[in-house]
Design a protein around this nucleic acid. Structure first.
Length: 572
DNA sequence: GCCGTTTTCGGCCCGACTGTTTTCAGTCG
């Protein structure tokens, strides 16, 4: 039973208890467990077996016991019992936007509605408005919510969200009434996927901002429009919320709207213990009601005796303890990256020549670039033959002789074949500056087989970097069935670096595993996997994800100067 | 259900917006 499956069960338990109207704090405890389990890099079975569950913040006696039962028997009696106590369809009704546990319960108790279909029929027939607390508008909203649910409100990729947000921020910034417009929320925390985009605006004329925002060309539908807060859905079905605040509250509002919710709850709990109250308007002394901070985030955190915590860390995953004890990491900064270690050229399936890429990378301020075209077996990507790669190496040597203050590294992205061998002979690999080894086929193999393949690749002395280790495409293709922690341990043993593929559809390794890699002392290499020029800028998402994994420059291979990098690559 | 430099019992973050309401519950983030 995987961590994900266990988290899903607890999530359902929380929903069931919610519908049954149980103690909200109990529900919150289950929800916290779901979040905490989602943040575990280690497999929960292993933690259970070494009796470590109770050390995890948010896992107490009761939940630890339930995890034990799930791990050992694959079942949870309590869950089965709770699940049987309400009709299954109520859980899917809960997924309808604007429909919460209270309304779901009322619909079931008063009208016997227990499936989405019955709900839709009853709403169409105008039967819902007879219920207390329901009206015609609610009926319409429920129908609309069901439509949205059918359409599938997927979270969007970080790269997509960034583009939408930057456009809107730019538009709002044009208003003379606007002094600041900035993205907050999960986008500011740089999560790999974004549910909706939050934008915070400082203005003395909120109405003007609301009017402008809700009338932007990109707006498909206005979800809500108030005096200081409005929500819209764009034509591409991305929800965007804009909130206007006064300058004196900007820091508090930014802190508040950046979240995460879990982080904010912890922040406010600290405040409460100090006789303070934190909301989006500021930090207030409870007794006197006086505002003690709010203009900047620095002020807000300082009022609680905390340093500013980088947004990427604000997930309620130990960052507040780290901040309190002065243990916050000195996170990787974009300008510390000295080169890209995974770029394709038109020699395989990229669009540009080596010379063009060199020029682009120099203008990005890099000191080197690693060329890593595909290997011979990857026909779909026009992989290089042995002869072609030898020619490419020669060309790179030639290009390098002409360059000053910049270096092209000759490399390859060699396929790890289904039997674990590599797609190029060792003699050829030995001639390269670096070798990225990746899996591009046989994704469905068993866990043992996949692990063996990766192990034999990493045991090869010429393999410097394991490329996109889990092979996932966010929202499209599941990660390989591998035990990532085990792979990381192997990487440490064999002295192989592990890639953080910065492409916004991959971000592979992810934040959780990066944090584990750091803990294990595994070196991370950030590469964009760029096939066209524009994709070189994906490095920003790589850096962001590295920061979410608590990485510092010293953990990242391509922060090294060229000479040290080459030495590090050869020293395996 | 979790947790503890006030507590092993009694707490557990905070406010905007909506819709259905003449003062508030539900939902959301």
């Amino acid at each position: 039973m995987t961590n994900k499956e266990i988290a899903e069960i607890f999530s359902q338990i929380a929903d069931i208890l919610d519908i049954k109207g149980e103690n909200p704090f109990k529900i919150r405890a289950y929800q916290k467990a779901v979040r905490v389990i989602g943040g575990l890099s280690e497999e929960i079975r292993a933690i259970h077996e070494r009796d470590g569950l109770r050390e995890i913040d948010g896992i107490g006696v009761a939940i630890a016991k339930k995890i034990g039962e799930l791990v050992e028997t694959g079942k949870l009696e309590y869950y089965e019992r709770e699940k049987a106590s309400i009709p299954e369809g109520l859980l899917s009704m809960l997924k309808v936007p604007d429909l919460g546990p209270k309304k779901v319960r009322a619909l079931h108790e008063k009208l016997g509605i227990d499936t989405l279909q019955k709900l839709e029929e009853a709403a169409r027939a105008g039967k819902l408005r007879q219920l207390a607390g329901f009206g015609e508008k609610t009926e319409q909203n429920i129908l609309h919510g069901i439509e949205l649910l059918k359409r599938g409100r997927e979270r969007i990729l970080l790269g997509t969200a960034t583009e939408v947000a930057e456009t809107i921020v730019e538009e709002l910034s044009k208003l003379k009434e606007v002094s600041v417009a900035v993205a907050a929320g999960s986008l500011r925390r740089q999560k790999e996927t974004i549910g909706d985009i939050d934008i915070l605006v400082v203005s003395r004329d909120p109405k003007k901002v609301m009017d402008t925002f809700t009338n932007l060309d990109c707006v498909g539908e206005i979800v809500a429009k108030g005096g200081t807060k409005s929500s819209v859905r764009t034509h591409e079905d991305v929800q965007v919320d804009v909130r206007v605040v006064e300058r004196k509250s900007f820091g508090a509002a930014l802190q508040y709207f950046t979240g995460s919710q879990a982080h904010n709850v912890e922040v406010r709990e600290i405040a409460v213990k100090r006789g303070l109250k934190v909301n989006e308007y500021g930090v207030f002394d409870v007794k006197s009601g006086k505002m003690v901070a709010g203009k900047t985030e620095e002020e807000v955190y300082a009022a609680l005796d905390l340093p500013v915590i980088p947004p990427e860390l604000r997930e309620g995953m130990g960052e507040i303890d780290a901040a309190r004890s002065g243990q916050l990491p000195d996170l990787l900064e974009p300008q510390q990256v000295r080169g890209d270690l995974h770029v394709h050229t038109r020699w395989s399936d990229g669009k540009h020549s080596i010379e063009e890429i060199v020029e682009a990378c120099r203008s990005l301020g890099y000191k080197y670039v690693g060329i890593a075209d595909h290997s011979q077996s990857l026909n779909v990507a026009n992989g290089l033959t042995v002869e072609e790669l030898e020619k490419q190496i020669e060309l790179i040597r030639k290009v390098n002789r002409k360059l000053k203050g910049f270096r092209v590294l000759a490399g390859t992205e060699v396929d790890i074949m289904s039997d674990g061998s590599l797609d190029f002979p060792d003699e050829l690999l030995a001639k390269l500056d670096f070798v990225v080894a990746s899996i591009h086929s046989g994704f469905k193999q068993s866990r043992e087989k996949l692990t063996d393949r990766i192990r034999s690749a990493m045991e090869n002395p010429h393999v410097s970097i394991l490329g996109h280790p889990t092979g996932r495409l966010i929202g499209r293709r599941d990660p390989l069935d591998i035990n990532v922690v085990e792979i990381l341990e192997l990487a440490k043993e064999t002295g192989t670096a592990v890639e953080l593929n910065a492409h916004h559809m991959r971000l592979d390794l992810n934040d959780v595993h990066l944090r584990k890699a750091k803990e294990l002392g595994v070196t991370i290499s950030i590469g964009t996997d760029a096939h066209v020029m524009d994709e070189l800028s994906s490095m920003r998402y790589g850096v962001a994800t590295a920061r979410r994994g608590w990485l510092e420059a010293k953990h990242v291979l391509n922060t090294l100067p060229a000479s040290k990098l080459l030495k590090a690559l050869k020293s395996k």
